[in-house]
Design a protein around this nucleic acid. Structure first.
Length: 496
RNA sequence: GGUCGGUUCGUCUAGAGGCCUAGGACACCGCUCUUUCAAGGCGGAAACACGGGUUCGAAUCCCGUACCGACUACCA
């Protein structure tokens, strides 16, 4: 049987990185098995589901390169089928009507308290008075318009068990499972029923999802059994936790957990996908940098870990705002990926920053490629091309205060020396690094100032920063005219 | 409270009884190259939660304790 897996997010916010990883693993598994990767939007919670969220999920998946193989399934459109299944189980005596008035649990705190309180009572989960109500009476009360929920009739004795591909054999006594509600008294099907029905209908063979569903699985298996369908294989994934070891949540951690944050911060999808793949999974060969093809080739459920992973971030630290390794990996991709693959991303970034010029793809193409290739060495994100790299693409760039202090103002004589050097360089016939270097060395010797001081001053004048590629390369890239002009600039000297 | 799960350097992880005086990666520290560095090269510090077993031998198997997490709802 061909493998069919699905990613089933509920559209109640942006796509978060834990979900993104679940999607990735499903995709990798499908591809590695020659199967299909499907997408189902679980939008049955009408109050919380939004159109916007669906859009954000789709965008996120597309960014990571996880395109579904078949049409997207919207769970809400299958509502009638879920309802029908509940009634079928009722007919067959595998479920019953519960006429208990609906309790109200409003805030989440109340819910938690309610659960614990209820649990302390340690009552028999089979003690519902309507469980064994004679069919005639149940039918009669229903016909008279009395509201009811439909609950699954879980047997008194026995246990469910399944072999989880990650966590191994899982067993649970029936006595620990309540007669779960399949259909709410307002006629809406519940999650566990909907999931099972849809997975059956979609022909899902392997359910790969977060570990938070591990205990739910027993309930779902009970539904499969009642429905007379063989359950799929299950593989539960360890969770991705926040630095404190708490569950990563949209509510508490905000945008940092949103996939789009990374896209907007200048991450390459290749890099972020690679990073995500290594959270909770590792290949046998200890390899870390992997293309999508390599991920697919190496992926296997056996490589998934059981323990949760912590995703580091610190919103108060601009340099460490997200996980170190993710940043490193992005930088690694930026400096080592084939240039022609990087170029389109840089183009897009420059466009966003209004720094793009069509000439970069025509007469200045060669220059553009050389420039990108040179400056990418020290960049971490695509954003760096429009910020740190701005001076290469625009005459309007900022001077870093510290750089000005350290490389210029510390040596006041440079204020007159640099324009002088500029005039000297202006006379060069060939503006190539050999000639530039020679000219600067001569100048430095003549003026009794160190070569390094000149170079650093030039770096700050030409690029506004204190760091960057070899200065001679910078001179060459900027060309004689721009270099000379910038060396003469008095702007940084008058700054502050 | 109950059920289930987890616990190897700060973090991501390798490890399936002897190959482990525990390996790699990120971050960190030092040295080095150099015109700068957040780049490159070289090196360093850094972990088997704890306690009992089993075994000739345990990070690896068993039991207990601790801690962490998930689930437990007419949410998904």
């Amino acid at each position: 049987m061909t493998v069919r897996v699905r990613f089933a997010p509920s559209p109640t916010g942006y796509l978060h990185i834990g979900s993104a990883r679940t999607a990735l693993f499903n995709f990798l598994y499908a591809r590695s098995k020659g199967g299909k990767f499907l997408l189902r939007i679980e939008d049955t919670d009408l109050e919380r589901s939004t159109e916007e969220s669906v859009k954000s999920i789709l965008e996120g998946l597309e960014w990571l390169g996880l395109t579904p193989d078949e049409e997207i399934v919207f769970q809400s459109r299958n509502k009638e089928k879920h309802v029908a299944a509940a009634f079928r189980l009722l007919e067959e005596g595998k479920a019953y009507r519960d006429f208990t008035p609906k309790g109200d649990a409003t805030s989440s705190k109340n819910i938690k308290e309610l659960i614990v309180e209820r649990a302390r009572e340690q009552k028999d989960l089979r003690s519902n008075p309507y469980r064994d109500l004679p069919k005639e009476e149940s039918d009669r009360r229903a016909a008279s318009g009395e509201p009811f929920a439909i609950r699954l009739k879980v047997p008194h004795e026995g246990k469910t068990s399944f072999e989880d591909a990650v966590y191994g054999l899982q067993e649970r006594e029936f006595s620990d499972i309540e007669d779960l509600v399949l259909l709410r008294s307002d006629g809406h099907p519940l999650y566990n029923l909907a999931v099972v029905c849809d997975d059956i209908e979609m022909g899902i063979t392997d359910v790969i999802r977060g570990q938070d569903h591990l205990t739910n699985t027993h309930k779902q298996i009970l539904i499969y059994e009642a429905l007379g369908v063989k359950p799929p294989r299950f593989a539960h994934l360890p969770l991705i936790l926040a630095p404190g070891g708490k569950k990563l949540s949209k509510r508490y951690h905000g945008e940092i957990v949103s996939l789009t944050t990374y896209r907007d911060a200048g991450f390459l999808p290749e890099a972020f996908r690679n990073f995500l793949a290594l959270l909770g999974w590792s290949p046998k060969n200890n390899k870390e940098i992997m293309s999508m093809e390599e991920l697919i080739e190496n992926f296997s459920l056996e490589g998934i870990h059981k323990n949760n992973a912590i995703f580091n971030f610190d919103s108060n630290n601009p340099k460490r705002w997200t996980d170190d390794k993710a940043i490193w990996m992005n930088a690694e991709y930026i400096r080592t990926m084939p240039l022609e693959k990087l170029l389109p991303y840089v183009k897009e970034e420059l466009k966003k920053a209004k720094l793009w010029r069509e000439e970069y793809e025509t007469e200045e193409r060669n220059w553009f490629e050389r420039t990108v290739n040179t400056i990418r060495e020290r960049f971490f994100t695509l954003k760096d091309f429009s910020t740190q790299g701005r001076a290469y693409f625009s005459e309007d760039y900022d001077f870093d205060e510290k750089a000005v202090e350290k490389n210029l103002k510390k040596h006041p004589e440079l204020q007159t020396l640099m324009p002088e050097l500029a005039s000297r360089l202006e006379k060069l016939e060939e503006f190539t690094h050999e000639h530039i270097e020679q000219a600067i060395r001569n100048f430095a010797e003549e003026k009794q100032i160190s070569f390094g001081v000149i170079m650093n001053a030039a770096r700050t004048l030409l690029t506004g920063t204190a760091v960057g590629p070899s200065m001679l390369a910078v001179f060459e890239l900027l060309g004689k005219e721009r270099s000379v002009m910038r060396l003469k600039s008095q702007i940084p000297w008058n700054q502050n």
